[in-house]
Amino acid sequence: MVQTIEVSGLRKRYGDVQAVDGVTFGVEEGEFFGILGPNGAGKTTTLEIIEGLRKADEGEVSVLGLSPWPRNPGLLPRIGVQLQASSFFERLTTREQLRTFGSLYGVPVKKADAMMELVGLEGKADVRVEKLSGGQAQRLSIACALVHDPELLFLDEPTAALDPQGRRNLWDVLRQINTQGRTVVLTTHHMDEAEILCDRVAIMDAGKILRLGPPAVLVRGLDVPARISVASGVLAVADARLLPGADEAADDGISLTITTRDPSAVVAAMAAKDALTGVQIHGATLEDVFLELTGREYRA
């Protein structure tokens, strides 16, 4: 069967920057797909080509079996897009904004108004967009992308400006949309978000996809030791080093941290010594995978 999104050999160049350098992937119907990558990796450019905002220099794109370029009015009502930089009609209120966008898709006024509740903006219905906070503007931008019930949703860093409650609320909204059978593609810099939401993620850097797969598989594939920490002093450092399975131990005066590739054995031994006060276990995360692949040094 046809995949919802099929991209192959995508390339895009801006002057002497190769923003997208041979990207190939597919997204299944109903899938929740994440694109991760450091700043300037080419995530936005890739999305914009798929959405039909930009023309690729090379490569094939098919969205819902259609070509997004040139501007395809048959495809546009079926996709919803939240752009990284939100943009609204000037001097309109939240409600007017949603109604205007809604009407471009033939969405009735009532339905457009209901979107405010979905993203928690009902209290801001009569506030002009210029007066919304960064996070509120972002929520409005997401609501505008959802207003016409698209089959396929693109979100470019949707949670970038949201507070923790807003993020969790949006996760709920997105999961709900996804369980209705809609396909969601998002980019994010929050690894926890990708791990929680995405069925599969693509890790991108310098215009190329470095790794693609379900987050759990990517994490398991990474040979990173777990860290077990307990309150400082419950166990001497020397004793901790001798625990079965322990690689390394250190006490910084606040916590004792043990590094191990066999956390279950270490924890069992510690339980036997009744030394589990304040225990925390940190396994490898998607963040470790990300840093492993894209390097730890800061790139300006």
């Binding site: 501007r71 609204f88 000037e90 966008f101 471009l104």
Partner: peptide
């Protein structure tokens, strides 16, 4: 110009409005 620089035109480009 405002609509283009502020990205409103891109937003409209994504809508089916001719």
């Amino acid at each position: 110009v405002t609509w283009r620089t502020k990205g409103i035109l891109r937003r409209l480009q994504l809508s089916p409005a001719p």
